[in-house]
Simulated scan of single mutants.
Amino acid sequence: MKKLIAAASLCVASFSVQAVTTVPEYDANAGKQIVESVCAACHGMNGISPVPSQPNLGGQNVKYLYKQLIDYKTGYRKNGIMQSQIANLSQQDLADVAGYYAEQPVWNVGYADPVTVQDATKLYLGGDKSRGVIGCAGCHGPDAAGNDWAAFPRLGGQHAEYIATQLKLFRAAGREDDITSDEQKRINDADKEGEVGMMQTVAARLSDRDIRILSDYISAIH
C-alpha cells in the first residue's frame, strides 16, 4: 500500500512538472518545411511512421512533442539518431516542428490480441495492487488520449513495438540493480537528472509479459 501511495504521489507531482512546459508561439508552415527535410523519412509527413520502431507523431500533444525535442537537444533524452538530426535546429525550429505535427490527424494503426486483451485491460485501467503497479489510465486516460494540459502523451494507436521499447527503457532506469548502459535507459520523465520519474517507478514493476500485452493493447485503442 505504501508503494501505491508513493506512486500516486509521483503522478500528482508529475502533473505539476509537465504543466510548466511552455511552447513558444510556433509557425506550422515553417515546421512543415523542416519536417520535409529532416523528420519525414522516419515519422512521415503526416506523422504516421512507416517504421514500427519509430513513433507516430501526428496529433500528439504539442507540449509533449516540444519537451521531447528539447530533451533530445540537451541530451536529457538519449538517442543518437534524433540528437544528430536536430543538432542544427534552434528552439524555435523545434517549436515549429512540434506545432506542425500536433496539427496533423491522429493515427490509428493497431489491433489487439484477443487472447490477452482482458488481462491487458485490467492492467491498463486498474494496475495490479499486489505488485504495486498503478494503472496507466490515471495519467494517459482510459481512452489513451493523454492529457494536453499536463503534457502526458497520447498513446492510443501508437506502434506496439515503439511502446514496448520505451517501457523497457523506463524500466531499466527505474531498477537500481539494472546494469544496462545509460544509453539504454530513459530518465526524462523526471524534472531533472538524479530524480526518479513516474514512468520509471511504474515500469520498474512490469514484467516482460506485462510490457508485451500492454503495448499490444494500447496500440489498439482508437
Rank of each mutant, 00 (worst) to 15 (best):
I86M: 10
D93K: 01
C11R: 09
G135F: 03
G58W: 05
D128G: 01
W107V: 04
I134V: 15
L169D: 01
P105N: 10
Q68K: 07
K192M: 14
K185D: 05
L4A: 08
V20A: 15
G156R: 00
G75T: 08
V202S: 06
R212G: 03
V196F: 02
H222P: 10
C136L: 09
G127R: 00
Q200K: 04
L57I: 04
A95I: 00
A204M: 11
T116K: 03
D178H: 02
D71K: 01
P114Q: 11
L69C: 12
N29C: 02
I179W: 09
E25T: 14
G31A: 12
K32T: 02
Q85R: 15
G157M: 05
P105E: 12
A150T: 02
V109A: 14
N188Y: 06
G174V: 05
E36A: 15
A150I: 01
T116W: 01
N147Y: 03
D128W: 01
D216N: 13
N61F: 07
S9Y: 14
A98V: 08
G58Y: 05
G156H: 02
I5N: 07
A204C: 11
G31F: 07
M1N: 12
I211P: 07
L4H: 07
Q18G: 15
A30S: 14
F15N: 10
S37F: 06
D148E: 15
A164D: 10
S9C: 12
I5C: 04
K192E: 15
V12S: 10
D208S: 08
S49K: 05
P114L: 11
N108V: 09
V97Y: 10
P55A: 04
Y26R: 13
G126P: 00
A220R: 06
Q104G: 02
G126T: 11
P52D: 03
